[in-house]
Design a protein around this nucleic acid. Structure first.
Lengths: 182, 182
DNA sequence: ACCTGAACACCGTTCAAGT
DNA sequence: ACCTGAACACCGTTCAAGT
């Protein structure tokens, strides 16, 4: 790969990460190209579609979150670890609009993100299992459900008009996990 | 207003209600016009913008929900009434894609929906107050928060890939309301 | 090889021409 | 008055022409 191509590809990814975080999934390719200092066509030379570019950016975010989660598995307090993971995932939604929009979509509009999500679900599964075995959580809950809880907390807060209040919704959900009857 | 105009306007609203429920907010005006049997231009003769048409359709949905909620205020069990209202709102999201998308947006993209939402919040406020006064709910919760809970339940279920599981997320949230520590 | 910008299809919106 | 469809601006995507 030619040196300018490497540079351009990287510039596109960096620009896309920033623009997508701010403006979400319908940020225009034109704006990303502008910010990267390349022509629109160059974006499509490196990524087959806008969705592919989005996938490349968001895959990095999911991987970071999964890595964080693996670190939490070693913590002494299983309930705290689960709570920390939920908080990290919810806060990521608050920080990144594109991730936020993807997190609340059932079908992954964006291909190539499915495996990343599976890895995340597996770690979440372990966190949930430990919390249940410790007795702190009574509700039956899968790793997939844990991901759902992150989205629930953030979207709930958004719907009140004050996204910053997500910790309140998260604490409600965690109370629910602890005391759920059945 | 001429007779054909009345007929066309109604046809547009009916078509829009159906198309928006199925395809959500980015259903095209062309498809709505087709289904209504009119030209695209006719849609814009009756509604200044696509957003205005969306508002007209969704306002009806919100009003229906608010009316249901007012009926529930008279019920004997305050916790049950709150739960029923939450279930009705969540189920509406499951049934109507456009309502669902609007419910998880902080800023009402669509103008003219703010007052409708306020009326809904007021009824929700009363339902929340009664549930708290009855002692069944410990968490402090406003009418606005109640709306947020509907969105939280449905979006959480969506994020697991199985929207039909919203009752599980709703029951977690209601458990949280009952037992929240603080 | 890779980059560029003109070109195309799609969609919301406008408006001149019809009835 | 109201309806229609051609026209415009915007955006994702393609590709012929340049280096």
């Amino acid at each position: 790969m030619r040196a300018d191509a490497v540079r351009n590809r990287e510039a596109v990814v960096v620009a896309a990460a920033s623009v997508l975080a701010d403006a979400g999934l319908n940020a225009s390719v034109a704006e990303i190209a502008d910010r990267a200092g390349v022509a629109k066509g160059t974006v499509f030379r490196h990524f087959a579609s806008k969705d592919d570019l989005v996938a490349a950016v968001v895959a990095g975010l999911i991987d970071d979150l999964a890595a964080q989660a693996e670190g939490m598995l070693a913590g002494p307090d299983p309930l705290q670890a689960l709570h920390d993971f939920l908080a990290a995932g919810t806060e990521l939604q608050a920080r990144d609009q594109a991730f936020c929009e993807l997190a609340s979509t059932a079908e992954l509009v964006v291909p190539g993100l499915a495996e990343r999500r599976e890895r995340l679900e597996e770690v979440a599964d372990l966190l949930a299992l430990r919390a249940r075995e410790s007795g702190a959580v009574r509700a039956e809950i899968s790793g997939r459900d844990v991901i759902g809880l992150m989205t629930a907390a953030y979207q709930g807060a958004c719907a009140t008009g004050d996204p910053q209040r997500w910790p309140y919704f998260l604490s409600l959900l965690v109370s629910g996990l602890r005391h759920a009857d059945a």
